[in-house]
């Protein structure tokens, strides 16, 4: 199972910024990362997979700001292109479980009864299933690549949203403003959409921020295990995995992708922290 601890979270807790400082600095960090990812072809004239076997493993120079790897590929370029893959998959792997989990949690909490029992049993089963075992199995079925990763993370990830939203609905449906909406005869679909959902979704949104980090960590871990995005595509996880052989001489090759993961985690945690403070005000 994926753990709740990820790089950057503890630091954010300790910094204790005000809501706006945290939110805006988080948005700036993630915005910059996204900008770099989008503008990667403009920022670098190297090919992320283009090998230059005459210039392998060189230290940072003016031409290669972060040096090159064992195949002479520019590390900075690979980092930038890697951001594209990791951020995209990270976000997609949260959007699907978010929608699925929130919907199921909303209906489950509101209706209760057999449907609720059924959903909660599926939730329990999913939690009990080891994540990486399932991911590996899926990779063999679907084939390595972003699809398998998104599928694997989605199949597990919805559980958290379902539980968060269901718990919030159980509280909200006993609140008097929901009773008042019922008394005014509004149809259930409308009560759920206008009166329940806006008040229960905040926790899910806040969680989704840290969930993106967890997804990226999962992608990176799968990449490290060789089950992620197939090589030679630039991806932070496989970069760490390939670079670990050179950690003693060219330490920056595996370290810098790791630092990128930390920065991403830090930025998203700041956004999450800012949202918590602002929405709970």
């Amino acid at each position: 199972m994926r753990t709740q601890r990820f790089p950057g979270k503890g630091i954010v807790k300790r910094l204790n910024f005000s809501a706006n400082t945290a939110l805006y600095s988080g948005i700036i960090i993630i915005g910059l990362l996204a900008l770099i990812a989008i503008a990667a072809p403009l920022l670098s004239h190297y090919d992320p997979t283009g090998q230059d076997l005459e210039n392998t493993l060189i230290a940072p120079t003016r031409h290669h700001l972060l040096g090159t790897d064992q195949l002479g590929r520019d590390v900075l370029t690979r980092i930038m292109y890697g951001a594209r893959i990791d951020l995209t998959i990270g976000i997609l792997a949260v959007v699907f479980p978010f929608i699925l989990g929130t919907t199921l949690g909303l209906i489950s909490g509101w209706r209760g009864g057999l449907f609720d029992t059924l959903v909660m049993r599926i939730v329990d089963t999913t939690i009990a299933f080891p994540f990486y075992v399932m991911a590996i199995a899926l990779v063999f079925v679907v084939g390595a690549g972003p699809k398998a990763i998104i599928l694997a993370i989605s199949l597990v990830g919805w559980v958290a949203y379902c539980r968060i939203v269901r718990a919030a609905v159980l509280v909200a449906k006993e609140l008097d403003y929901v009773h008042a909406a019922k008394l005014s005869g509004l149809p259930t679909s409308r009560i759920l959409r206008k009166h329940v959902l806006p008040n229960v979704i905040t926790q899910a949104i806040i969680f989704s921020m840290s969930d993106i980090v967890l997804s990226i960590l999962a992608i990176v871990s799968l990449g490290y295990l060789g089950l992620g995005v197939p090589i030679p595509t630039a991806e932070w996880g496989s970069m760490i995995q390939e670079g670990q052989a050179y950690i003693l001489q060219q330490w920056w090759i595996p370290t810098i992708p790791g630092v990128m993961v930390v920065i991403t985690g830090f930025g998203l945690s700041l956004i999450g922290d800012g949202l918590v403070k602002r929405l709970n005000k």
């Binding site: 008097d176 008394l183 005869g185 806006p198």
Partner: peptide, 19 residues
């Protein structure tokens, strides 16, 4: 439903905070 309406006790939980 319309004919019988209620006024609730808690002035905080009886109004939808996001509306």
């Amino acid at each position: 439903r319309r004919a019988v309406q209620m006024i609730f006790q808690d002035p905080y939980s009886s109004l939808n905070p996001r509306m």
